[in-house]
Each structure stands twice: as C-alpha cells, then as structure tokens.
Amino acid sequence: MDAAAKAFTEAAITEIFSRCCENAPNYGVLEETFSNSVFRTIEKRLEAGSEQPLTTAEIREFLDNLQADDLFLALACAAGNERAWWEFDQAHRSYMERFARHLARGDADPDEVIGNVYIELYGTRVVDGERYSKFGTYSGRGSLRGWLRTIIWHSVVDQHRAGHSEVSLDEMTETIGEGAAHAAFAIPQAEGDTQMIEQVAREKYRSATVAALSEAFSALESHEKLLIALYHVDNLKLREISRLVENEDSPLRGWIKRRSVSREKDPSARIHESTVMRWLEKSYERILDVFKKDLAGRQGLNSDEVEICIALASADLAGPDIYRDLAAG
C-alpha cells in the first residue's frame, strides 16, 4: 500500500471508529486496536490476494462492506469488556442457542456446545502472557451472526467427532456426500480371458472419457466450477445457491455476472433460482461441447465410440450390468 492509500485508509478508519464509539461509548476499544485489526485484514485479504496495486476505490469498497459495529463489539469482547459481553449476550445468545439446538438434533448437547463456544470466545488459553480470545479472529468481513454460525457449526462437528473417535472430519465429509463417488466411478474387476479383453476395451474408452471430462472441467472458470460443485457434489438446492447472489449489492453476484456477461443476455435481470439454473445450464452446454470436441477431435473417436464412452461411464455410475451386456454383444 502506498503512502497516499495508507493516509486515505487511516482517515477512513478514524471516521468509522468515531461512529462506532458514538454507538457504543462504553466498550473501551482503543482506536489503535481497531485500526490494527482493519489493517491486518486489508493486508491478508486485499494485498495478499492480488499482485495488482491496491487502489483507494478498492479500499473504499472494502471499508463500506466492513461490519464495523460488529467488529467493534468483538474487539471489546476480546479485551474482556463486561459491558460488551452483556450486550453480546443479549443480542446473540438466544439465537446461538436456537442454532445449536437445530444443529445438534440429538447428536450433541446444545447447551454444552454453547458453553464451549462461550469459553472459546472468551478464551482460556494464554499465549505470550495474553489471553487468546476467539473474537480476535473475527475480521468484520461478514456479519458477527454469520461468523457465530460458523463457529457453532464447527463446535458441533468437533463434538460429533469426539463421540465418534474413529471418524475423521474428512471421512465425515465423505460420508455426507462425496464418499460414494469413488466407488461409483470404480471399474468392476473382470474375471477370465474373455472378460480381460472386454476390460481392455472398457479401460480404453473409460480413459478417453475421463480425459475428455478433465479437459472440459479445465475449460471452466472458477465460479462455474464452484456453482456446479455446490449443486452436484454438495447437493445444494438452487434456492440455497441463489442466496449467495440474490442481494443486488452482493459482490459475488457482480463478480459472477461480470464473468458471465458475454453469455448472459440480460445482466440486469433479478437473480433467483431460475437464473442460477440458467447459469448451470450454460456451463453444462460448454462442458458438453468441450467434451464432444475432445473425444471426436483430439482423441479421434467416431460417433459410435463416443456413444460407447458415454454408456460405459454412465454405467460406472449405475453398476456393472452394462459390462455383461457389452460382453453379450
């Protein structure tokens, strides 16, 4: 950050800090503490995220999106200010409890979860003579309530793992949605000479299919990969995905639309479920196009062989029966 940008940032932070003090004069947060927190986040999120020089417009946008009062409260709580803790408790505890109860569903004790979260938020660990409060990790980039949901969610996951010590988080993740895929894409073992020949043929077309799928995936932009993965791998509903972008002011919405503008006929249209579906369909059109071109072009397969590739790969998902049909043919 150059000197001018730094001066601009410092002045803007002072202004924000003054407003926070007016809203909560008893929290005892020092301007230096507040400023250091914001500068740390700018360094981590804006400067480290891109090699381009940081502009004052980007800093302004960043500061406009800062949840300043939430950050102010979090910093006060991190410092152990009792008034701040009381306000925090009044504003968020009942919400946290309901959220924990919803998450726990008999698998974890919601009171214990909230108790652990409170202890973590206050901090019992001392590092270099200072108490380490979880509040210190909150940057004000999202709402405090959204941040709390994440903390509680992880706490519930941790409690679940503690009760199922043989299950790692990754294994849990796989159990939730992705674990079956590995098996689904596996090739059934062949037995005997005849089946061995079939397997060679199968492997040829399977390899061609995987290579073409890989090529098609590479052609996608990050936001397309993310949308497709959220929908098909993580099984999010369109409504849930659309929440990411439904707000007119959502930067992600602008980000996706900016990248989709060449394919989006009406960029000003309201973004809702059907819009997300349309984005997905357009991405799939591109994937299918690249997939076909790769099989027919780079790999030189004819249309019958392309059909076989699709049939074999699809059969991998359904089970081994197709291989028996192939052998019979």
Partner: peptide, 11 residues
C-alpha cells in the same frame, strides 16, 4: 463465514 454472508469485495 464472510463468503457465505456475501460481503466480500471483488478483489
């Protein structure tokens, strides 16, 4: 949490 909240800037 910030990503889910939708408040992050383009950069």
């Amino acid at each position: 949490a910030a990503f889910v909240d939708g408040g992050l800037t383009l950069r």
